Amino acid sequence: MRAYRRLVNTLVCCSLLLLICPEFAFAEITLRFGTVFTPTTSTYRMLVDACRRIEAETNGAVTIDIRPTGEFGKPTELMKMVDSGDLEIAYTVQGYSPTRFVASSVIELPLIRRTATGGTKALWDLYESGALDHDYEGLKVVGLWALPTYGIFTATRPMDSPRDLRGLRIRNPSKTVGRALAKLGIVPVALPLNSMAAGMKSNLIDGISYGWYSSTTTGGADGQPLMNQLTHLLDINFSGPVVMLAMKRTTFDALPAPVKTAFDAHLGKGISIAIAEERDQIEEGMKRKLAEDGVHKVKRFSPSQMRDIRDELEEVYADWAAGMSEQGIDGRRLLDAARKAIAANEKP
């Protein structure tokens, strides 16, 4: 009888505990999170911190196994691994899936934005308005941000005016950017990211369209940073990729309510904007450092020259909009909405 009473008391206590703290009812869940970052990068540290806060707030109901580049798969494979169920969360560059995230590519159009922060806020405005629903069917957007815009960098040829762009052989980062480069008289060259240094060393290309900070951390020829092969740096804010953190919607929806709440609190829009703001600060700091190092020559075109370039690219924007229309998306309306969102989120 005494043993029976102890059993009853134990069951009552457990029931009360589950009523007061329902998260204890959940079996521990492990979510595998693949990234493309090294452990020392600030973005990786920010994501790790967010994951640990989610774990703490849910009292260990979820463990997020976030790992640096290469530990779960190649960068180009991570999104496919989410689709197949071999990974729960993936960081991906949307350009790795060019036929999938077509509407979001509006933020990658040349000269449409100046900053990662403005582009990211505009992205979220468009996403929350439903304008990008085409891209994210079946997905939970855990993060979504624009990277800083690229410059155009050459090894030996100066770019003092738009005329100097003509005939330059520049590595082409994407189809739309390549179309825009060609409109300016540049010869776009399709080349893998890891072949940029060899391409310049062998004189296959004159330069690249790439990030300022990334050019100092990406490996170049002879074991030196890629930036060591470059001299003339055009600060033109030409274009920049959109990246995201993605989960299958069914995977997210199956999570306990407290875990979903913690995800939305510590990832999502908030961390996306925070990462974009930090990336802008890093990028601007690197521009100043390179301009002052006595080796590199940083050039900006005048406002009137930039207006001429934008006018030259109107055909590229029209082609992009027409391509969207072929996929059932009102491309002109989306482009207008993106421009308004960027104008509202970027300082003049």
Rank of each mutant, 00 (worst) to 15 (best):
T99E: 14
T69D: 07
V106E: 10
K260Y: 00
C21Q: 12
R163T: 08
S97V: 05
G70P: 05
F24P: 00
V48L: 14
I54D: 08
T43C: 01
A3E: 12
S209R: 01
F252W: 13
D308W: 01
D293G: 08
T92L: 14
V316L: 06
L204A: 12
P188C: 07
L47Y: 06
T251M: 11
I64C: 06
A344M: 08
Y91T: 08
E326D: 14
A27W: 03
R5L: 15
A265R: 15
D83G: 07
R307G: 13
A343R: 10
R163K: 15
V36K: 02
P162T: 01
I112V: 12
S325Y: 02
T30W: 02
V142D: 15
P158E: 11
N194I: 01
A274P: 02
I170M: 06
L230N: 09
R307H: 11
A182C: 08
I208R: 02
M1G: 12
R339F: 05
Q305R: 04
T76S: 13
A337C: 11
T261F: 01
L11T: 09
P188E: 13
F33D: 05
G185C: 08
E326S: 11
K140G: 09
R300L: 07
Y317M: 03
A322F: 03
A90P: 15
P256L: 04
R100E: 15
C13L: 15
T176L: 11
Y210M: 08
D336H: 12
K175M: 10
T250V: 13
V12A: 12
T176H: 09
S215K: 01
C21M: 11
Y210C: 07
T156G: 12
E57A: 07
L313K: 04
M196F: 08
G220H: 05
